[in-house]
């Protein structure tokens, strides 16, 4: 088992999350099944006290879990130096059969945990806590995903064999590779760019039309199309190499850690975009969510667009 200080920190945190999540899960089930705010019984008052405690436990698990995703990526990147063949986090992800599933699960959980926090925040703004039952219901579902993530993370770190030579990102994210990911590199750049800017244009149009559900939906599509375009097209301009498509290398110092900004912009933009559609709140809050979504999606688009443009200005050619 690979036990660098970063991995150790993640594992210790996971043990803490595991224990507290189990407590929160047991109480959540109880609250979800028996909650009735209109009741003035002793059992309901007890549940109200417990709901505050439980929500606080969940809140702090998720508040730490959300930014911890970046630390997890940073850790993968850091330990890549210990694996023969790995040049960045991609090599570590690919070193075991769990890595890719773990990353996908972490992305799903990232949105889910952030949504729970937003829901809880909204719930606490109302005297009659309209979302209490819903938020504990969501946590019950999220609990299983959280547990899967924790277990998968432990299993992945345990399965990493530092004696084993792993593939580097150049081999994993190559158009000649035989993986499902290589399919996206064969897509035409022009098609991807039309989809990418077209999708962003739709976000802008639905922002002005204030169509919250379609706005949320276009943000959901934007997550997928953005990641594909980033890996397939924009990444090559960040690396200034037409054959390099790695989604992790630009997290490194050599690229001024720009990857963190890229992913943070994308996450915040699309998360608030989804939130505007999936969280019933005041008009003021929805309007705020719209604005944050548009701002961060815009920053994301500007940041990515600047790379090919600057490359063209500097070199007079496209890759």
């Amino acid at each position: 088992m690979l036990l660098s200080p970063e991995v150790l920190a993640l594992l210790i945190l996971n043990v803490i999350f595991f224990l507290f999540a189990i407590i929160a899960f047991i109480l959540s089930v109880k609250i979800f099944l028996k909650w009735d705010l209109n009741s003035t019984s002793q059992a309901q008052y007890k549940l109200e006290k417990q709901s505050f405690l439980t929500a606080t436990i969940i809140k702090y698990i998720f508040i730490i879990k959300v930014p911890l995703f970046l630390f997890f990526i940073f850790t993968l990147d850091k330990i890549s130096g210990l694996l023969t063949g790995a040049m960045c986090a991609a090599g570590v992800v690919n070193a075991t059969s769990y890595g890719t599933y773990l990353i996908l699960l972490k992305i799903l959980n990232l949105y889910l945990f952030a949504y729970w926090l937003a829901l809880h925040n909204e719930d606490m703004k109302h005297e009659h806590q309209p979302y209490t039952k819903m938020k504990f219901g969501i946590f019950i579902a999220a609990f299983f995903l959280l547990m899967t993530e924790i277990i998968l993370e432990g299993v992945m770190f345990k399965a990493i064999d530092i004696e084993k030579v792993v593939d580097c990102c150049g081999a994993i994210y190559s158009s000649s590779a035989n993986s499902y990911i290589s399919v996206i590199f064969r897509l035409k750049a022009s098609l991807l760019l039309v989809l990418f800017y077209g999708n962003f244009l739709l976000i802008v149009i639905f922002y002005f039309l204030k169509k919250r559900y379609i706005f949320a939906l276009s943000n959901a599509f934007f997550i997928i199309i953005s990641l594909i375009t980033l890996i397939s097209f924009f990444g090559t301009y960040i690396y200034q190499l037409p054959t390099h498509h790695c989604p992790f290398c630009f997290l490194q110092k050599d690229y001024y850690y720009i990857g963190y900004f890229i992913y943070i912009f994308l996450f915040i933009g699309t998360f608030y975009g989804l939130l505007s559609g999936f969280l019933r709140t005041s008009e003021k809050e929805i309007s705020k969510n719209y604005k944050i979504a548009l701002l961060f999606n815009f920053l994301y688009v500007i940041l990515l667009t600047s790379y090919p443009i600057l490359f063209y200005i500097k070199n007079g050619v496209w890759l």
Binding site: L37, T40, Q42, Y45, M124, H128
Partner: peptide, 15 residues
């Protein structure tokens, strides 16, 4: 158990 109401507001139910 029970309820405290002040000016129609159930204050024993407030967070």
């Amino acid at each position: 158990s029970g309820e405290v109401i002040v000016d129609g507001k159930k204050i024993s139910k407030l967070s």
